[in-house]
């Protein structure tokens, strides 16, 4: 128990240390995860919307695949992407391996199914009368789409938060695709893995607390946005 308190104290110390490397890691983790989440939202919400609102042949099969993708192990994503981006691989010419872009791509692939699936659930939960009412008031296709998204906005935001949580907490693909390069691709999770493997358990745990604190702060921010949206 004592080491937990000690690690928590170290974490507080890290926060106030203003250490360039620590804050660099934190900033990089946030930048990578937010970029990946933004991209996953841009792709995932339209995919989820189409799957959730349209009727087509093979829809239930597609939903099963999408649900399965939510459980993709991060290492498998890392492995597959590594196979694509390594020097002799089909996309090797892009020279992405061990770069921030590779980490973002890995996190994007992990967040996408979560955001897409939760968008499907969110739009399917919208009262069908919303669409009928919108159409009866003369809404065109764009306005109907916007109305459905607005009616589902709190659930959509919850899906985006879940996607962000998946992106910022993953370690497998960030390690394999980013290579954990200091001042370049090292993120909170890969730093924790490194410090623990070096025997710096306390420092790793302190970083872990820092990561939790960061995710907690982001969730408070999202929650605040949700509350603000509910009041307006």
């Amino acid at each position: 128990m004592e080491y937990l308190l000690e690690a928590f104290g170290d974490c507080i110390g890290l926060i106030f240390s203003l250490d360039r490397e620590i804050y660099g890691i934190v900033g990089r983790s946030l930048a990578f995860s937010l970029t990946a989440t933004l991209l996953a939202t841009l792709f995932g919400v339209p995919i989820g919307f189409l799957v959730g609102t349209k009727r087509f042949r093979g829809k239930s099969g597609l939903l099963t695949v999408m649900n399965t993708l939510m459980a993709l192990p991060t290492v498998v994503i890392g492995l597959l992407a590594y196979g694509l981006f390594s020097r002799r691989a089909p996309l090797g010419f892009l020279d992405l391996l061990f770069s921030p872009a590779a980490v973002i791509i890995g996190e994007f692939i992990l967040s996408l199914p979560i955001i897409a699936n939760l968008t499907v659930s969110a739009v399917q939960a919208v009262d069908p009368r919303a669409v009928l009412t919108a159409k009866s008031l003369g809404a065109g296709r764009t306005m109907v789409t916007w109305t459905i998204l607005m009616e589902a906005r709190f659930s959509l935001l919850a899906g985006i938060i879940a996607g962000f949580g998946r992106a910022i907490s993953e370690v497998g693909s960030a390690m394999m695709l980013g290579g954990n390069i200091r001042f370049y691709t090292r993120t909170m999770t890969t730093a924790i893995a490194l410090e623990t493997s070096k025997g710096e358990f306390g420092f790793g745990l302190a970083l872990g607390f820092f990561l939790l604190l960061m995710v907690f702060s982001m969730n408070i921010l999202f929650h605040f946005l949700q509350m603000k949206g509910r009041r307006s």
């Binding site: 009368r129 919303a130 009928l132 009412t133 009866s136 109305t147 607005m150 307006s232």
Partner: peptide, 19 residues
């Protein structure tokens, strides 16, 4: 759309948008 905007329909069970 143009024609529909000159029509009105009250649903059996009215719906209020979440706004």
């Amino acid at each position: 759309l143009e024609i529909q905007r000159s029509m009105a329909m009250t649903l059996q069970s009215p719906y209020l948008f979440n706004t």
